[in-house]
């Protein structure tokens, strides 16, 4: 049984019965989730519940084996696409641990990414001037100092600067589906506010955002339309933003208990 958030032709992402393993160990055990255009979803759950695995599977990282189920994105089979094709189609992952790439210029990487996407979508590539205008505008959005643009990707950045750089990249790449993997972790309150402002500014009717987070804190700044509890590889409960508050107050155990009771009821009924 699945909690279907929204049904209809404007489904952007449809995850059905998704099972995935890492190094032979099953982490996702049947995820069902539908995300409509323009919606903001929060996926919450205890450590080790499979939150990051879900983001990585959607972004196409190696080492995550999908053993069953499907992920449909804008009506296409997302799992059949290479990571870069997913990016071209508008999927963006803000990393939990953004990697440092010394020697690869932040701006160069983004220009290559933006133009690859534009080419894929049959649009004219941006020239150097147009691109610089674009990134200056977007850097302001997340209060990212201009000097960061010409540095190596995340090279020598603090934890907060790395996360801000992720949101900056999201602003530049203008995805239609953004996955924010623990974007709030390691941020102090000021940095969190800046990052949240950036994300909120990017909310619109076509762009869907999935926030994977451990804490309610981020949701004070970015208000979700839907909240899901992920535990032991399954979505146990879904609701609106009030669910997050309830989780903050009561922890995760009651959701697990509820789910266990529901499962045993179901077992008896069958």
């Amino acid at each position: 049984m699945s909690f279907v958030v929204k049904k209809g032709f404007d489904d952007m992402l449809k995850i059905e019965n998704l099972h995935a393993s890492v190094a032979g160990k099953e982490i996702l055990k049947g995820i069902n989730l539908t995300i409509g255009a323009g919606e903001v979803h929060a996926i919450m759950g205890p450590n080790g519940s499979g939150k990051s695995t879900l983001s990585n599977v959607i972004a196409g990282r190696d080492g995550y084996e999908v053993t069953a189920g499907s992920v449909t994105y804008h009506g296409k089979d997302l799992l059949a696409m290479k990571p870069e094709e997913r990016a071209w189609e508008g999927v963006f992952l803000a990393f939990q641990y953004p990697v440092e790439i010394p020697g690869v210029n932040n701006t160069y990487m983004l220009k290559a990414g933006v133009n690859a996407k534009r080419k894929h979508q049959g649009e004219q590539e941006l020239d150097a001037m147009e691109f610089m205008q674009l990134i200056r505008k977007k850097a302001k959005l997340v209060e990212l100092d201009q000097s960061f643009l010409s540095r190596g990707v995340n090279e020598g950045f603090s934890g907060g600067e790395k996360k801000r750089n992720e949101i900056f990249q999201m602003a530049v790449l203008e995805p239609s589906l953004a996955l924010l993997d623990e974007t709030d972790s390691g941020l102090d309150i000021d940095a969190l506010r800046v990052v949240a402002q950036g994300v909120n500014a990017l909310r619109n009717a076509e762009r869907s955002i999935v926030m994977v987070t451990h804490y309610q804190r981020l949701l004070d700044y970015i208000e979700p339309d839907f909240v899901h509890v992920l535990a032991d590889g399954k979505i146990l409960k879904s609701g609106d933003k009030n669910l997050a508050l309830e989780l903050e107050e009561r922890g995760y155990d009651w959701v697990k208990d509820e789910a266990a009771i529901a499962a045993s009821d179901q077992g008896q009924a069958a």
Binding site: R61, A87, F95, A112, G113, K117
Partner: peptide, 14 residues
């Protein structure tokens, strides 16, 4: 591999 994936996730080909 992590750096490669990061770049690909930003739209750069392999």
């Amino acid at each position: 591999e992590t750096q490669l994936f990061y770049l690909k996730s930003r739209g750069l080909s392999e």
